[in-house]
Nucleic acid binder design. Structure first.
Lengths: 330, 330
DNA sequence: TTGTAGGCGTTATCAA
DNA sequence: TTGATAACGCCTACAA
């Protein structure tokens, strides 16, 4: 791989001049510029980003550290992030922590040590003291969950409101014995559970259950099974994310129950397939595209101006009512 | 961020000694080592990977460049890759090309320029001349599709055989007017189409259709619509990947057709949700876990020994028969 | 066992 | 407008 030195030699100029051409500086004579460009083309020279980054202490790569690549919410956000970054000439590398604080620390450190411009993060649960990478000057935008540290940019949806809307929808359609399954990690599950309870309380009702569950399909299936085998079964289940919805669905299928006749089902996050079920599943969709684009905007802002006070963006979810929560007895 | 220099200063030694401690070399006296380690801890020093990589010309990060983050096949593979790499002390960064050759070239170049140890790639379609990053000494393992360049490690499944098995399953269950939708990008769709045609031919049948389609949900839906609105409708549809299956499903739902009564449906790739439909969808599952782990193994091998002749690993898919292809008229 | 010094490929400063 | 040259942070001969 040719270096700037060889380009300089071939063009008969100094490395400084090549560097100037590369940086598109104005103070290079047209003929010299042409010679250098010819040499670059001839050698197939490409700037070494490692060296560049070492020298300039920055890069135009940004990191996206997600807690679960298999959660469609994150892949949708990733798509949006990638698009928005690409438009601005930034590249995105994505890492998967699988909700493992150790991996999160590792990848955050990797990002810092690789000199990325900044990181968009959906935090894993925090075990013990904060990993040292946190806040070490690395521009950081936290999405989906409350930032575990103060002073960071943050993008979330109004989870209480969203969960309350989803629950109110069920109540309005005549369901009364409602159970809720919420992610046990981070602020999100907590808030959604809060909105769920609040909506029930407004109607003077108690929940059949309001459980914290590992945000995984298997866990959702297990807890749903326990609920649905009770003597008096819930007539509706609300799930805190699409993996839990999947899990509940697995159990509902296994038990041979009908939706919504035996039990209604509603969850968070729109996926590609929930509308294809019969009946289709009612969801509270998060605006993944806006989340991704806003994350990039906040990050760019922070990279440009590290000292500005952190923003907190709260978006709204959208209720998409479908057959799985059709009015009771209709 | 403290550098090795400051550590050396605080510990009262030279940078070389610090470097030795970092590299766990044996020729450092215990007391000096202790002093250095104390200084490292005190300053919160972390080695700068950029500098290290510039110097040593390698790193323990590997790149995973996929053609579509939203395709569950790739996220499943990504999980497996991450696990296998993590066990070996490697980190994985993932990039999404969205089937865009330009983005692929960009990310491949990024990987090269960032000095990653190697890359696992599912190639986008190749437009025009090969991007310069290809083969420039960067260890590369190609998955899912045939390598567009000779001399590269390659992991695929036996697509002809798999498609033939899926088609034979339909034939065995009494379907005769079978249409196929196959991804228009890369070798995979081609081979699957070949196996599809072969199976039909063995039974002395012609396909109702055997179309190449952009491997996207919308494209699948469009082509399926055209097929299903024909005067004489196919009695079964085979899809070349899960996004196409989704698309076909969208159309089937929109047209109010029943599965498998009006039309049977089968596709490639197991996803989390296809078993949850009623009827559940028959699929030809690829061993994503084996693919991911094998990719890491091949890559590690090539990193260690760049000169060995390339391997080509051909795995088998597994037919998972479900209700969507139940015997005709049963 | 420890230190000195050169260089990995860039960019930026300072002279010329 | 151009060229020497000194860093960026690290590793590794080589010397002590």
């Amino acid at each position: 791989m040719p270096s700037i030195k060889q380009v300089a030699a071939t063009a008969g100029v100094s490395t400084a001049t090549v560097s100037r051409v590369l940086a598109n500086k104005s103070n290079v004579s047209p003929e010299v510029r042409a010679r250098v460009e010819a040499a670059i083309a001839e050698l197939g020279y490409r700037p070494n980003l490692v060296a560049r980054s070492l020298r300039s202490q920055r890069s135009n790569t940004i990191g996206l550290v997600v807690s679960d690549v298999r959660n469609p919410f994150f892949t949708e956000v990733a798509r949006a992030v990638e698009d928005a970054a690409y438009e601005r000439g930034f590249r995105v590398v994505m890492c998967n922590t699988d909700e493992d604080p150790e991996k999160e620390a590792l990848y955050l450190a990797l990002m810092r040590d690789e000199n990325v411009a900044g990181v968009i993060l959906s935090p894993a649960p925090q075990a013990g003291p904060r990993p040292s990478a946190w806040g070490h000057g690395l521009p950081l935008v936290v999405i989906d969950r409350e930032a575990p540290l103060p002073g960071l940019d943050n993008i979330v949806i109004d989870n209480r409101k969203a969960a309350a809307a989803l629950t109110a929808h069920l109540l309005q359609n005549g369901y009364r014995r409602i159970a809720g399954l919420f992610g046990a990690i981070g602020s999100t599950g907590e808030e959604r559970r809060g909105g769920f309870l609040q909506a029930l309380q407004t109607h003077g009702l108690d929940p059949v259950a309001a459980e914290y569950v590992a945000p995984r399909r298997a866990a959702g299936a297990d807890v749903a099974r326990e609920l649905l085998l009770r003597e008096v079964r819930p007539d509706a289940i609300v799930c805190g994310n699409s993996l839990l919805t999947e899990g509940a669905l697995v159990t509902i299928r296994e038990l041979g129950l009908r939706i919504p006749g035996d039990v209604a089902l509603a969850g968070f996050d729109e996926t590609s397939w929930q509308a294809l079920l019969e009946p289709a599943i009612t969801v509270l969709a998060q605006p993944t595209d806006v989340i991704g684009r806003t994350a990039i905007e906040l990050l760019m802002g922070r990279v440009a101006e590290p000292a500005v006070p952190p923003s907190r963006v709260v978006l709204d979810g959208a209720l998409i009512a479908r057959g799985s929560t059709a009015p009771r007895g209709s």
